[in-house]
């Protein structure tokens, strides 16, 4: 995801503690430094028969991965994302319910948790909008995909997952003529080539209601921190009940016009409440979250303390003249999954 050109700039953003270390050689090492506090990000599934030739990911052996494994993983993620509320969200919602004093706010959060129990027990999707499948794929440069194309494997996985799981088809092939493709394909796919011989699949089943409330603005450097804060808070407030609060707010700051949007979506892949490892970015996350929750919009817009469960910011290098900011809103179902092959 991160273009090579921005690595140096991102290194410059590393916390003081990271600067004394030798410069990271690979993106994985860099991310390890950035997200050192979050081992889950680089957790590898055990027992999948993968052999690694050494400790350094740059010395790994070539591996082949058949498209069927990708297809099956995607199908399983589509179903799991829709049937099971993730553990991080469950904790966040439970904590929020305990904080709410207004009966309507508390009852709404309890109903959301009850909904998750019903969904899991009956293999019913938590929401009828089972989302557009957005796949982030990190492909180790020592990986060779066999048996077909990555695009076809992912779309076939989505097709199978959504059909077998009785999940709703929610994709129009043509944004102007509309209609419905009938099997929830095609997926939106973002690929990135990284070091190593693994293939990492991260999936969001992105709902339309919250996606519709997302916004972009090209600020100027003079707008700075305050401008960013105001724009993000304004976006969350305008979204109000439409985005199914309590929401998760993904923010991409920097990059270019299109890259800031990608950063905002990518920030949603982080476990809920995992703060940025950059101190000044984490402080901004906290400040924006407090301001959004001071709006009083509350669960489902019925009033209360919990309008947002978390604000996640990803920052990237940008042009000296620019300050692009994208805000990608996620509802309280926040369906995210990860598999490493």
């Amino acid at each position: 995801m991160t273009p090579q050109g921005t690595l140096a700039a991102e290194r410059a953003l590393l916390p003081e503690s990271g600067r004394g270390l030798p410069p990271p050689k690979t993106l994985r090492e860099l991310l390890g430094l950035l997200f050192g506090s979050a081992p889950v990000l680089w957790r590898c599934d055990k027992g999948n028969g993968t052999e690694r030739s050494g400790k350094q990911s740059t010395e790994t052996k070539m591996r082949t991965i058949h498209v069927n494994r990708i297809r099956d993983s995607v199908a399983a993620m589509c179903k799991r994302a829709n049937f099971e509320l993730s553990a991080d969200m469950r904790v966040a919602l439970r904590t929020a319910a305990e904080l709410e004093t207004a009966p309507l706010a508390r009852n709404t959060l309890l109903r959301i948790l009850q909904n998750a129990d019903v969904a899991q027990a009956r293999e019913l999707p938590m929401c009828q909008d089972t989302g557009l499948a957005v796949l982030f794929v990190e492909i180790g440069q020592e990986v060779r995909i066999t048996g077909g194309t990555l695009r076809d494997a992912i779309d076939e996985g989505v097709r199978q997952g959504y059909t077998e799981g009785y999940l709703r088809a929610s994709v129009s092939a043509d944004p102007i003529r509309r209609g419905n493709t009938g099997d929830n394909t095609p997926a939106v796919i973002h690929t990135e080539v990284v070091a190593g011989n693994r293939l990492r699949l991260q999936m969001l089943a992105k709902g339309g209601g919250c996606e519709n409330m997302s916004r972009f603005k090209m600020l100027t450097p003079a707008d700075g921190r305050e401008g960013i804060t105001n724009f993000v808070v304004e976006t969350a407030t305008l979204a109000g009940p439409n985005a199914c609060p309590p929401i998760v707010v993904g923010v991409g700051i920097g990059g270019t016009f299109e890259y800031s949007a990608l950063l905002s979506k990518k920030s949603l892949l982080r476990p809920i409440g995992q703060r940025s490892s950059l101190a000044h970015v984490a402080a901004l996350e906290d400040e924006i979250l407090a301001k959004i929750n001071a709006s009083g919009i509350g669960p489902q817009g019925y009033g209360g303390k919990t309008t947002s469960l978390a604000v996640h910011i990803e920052a990237g290098a940008c042009h000296v003249a620019s300050l692009p900011v994208s805000v990608n809103i996620e509802c309280h179902a926040h369906r995210h999954q990860e598999t490493i092959l």
Partner: peptide, 13 residues
């Protein structure tokens, strides 16, 4: 009337 968004499993009951 407002129903709680994203609780479609519970509401289906």
């Amino acid at each position: 009337f407002g129903a709680i968004g994203r609780t479609g499993a519970l509401l289906s009951l």
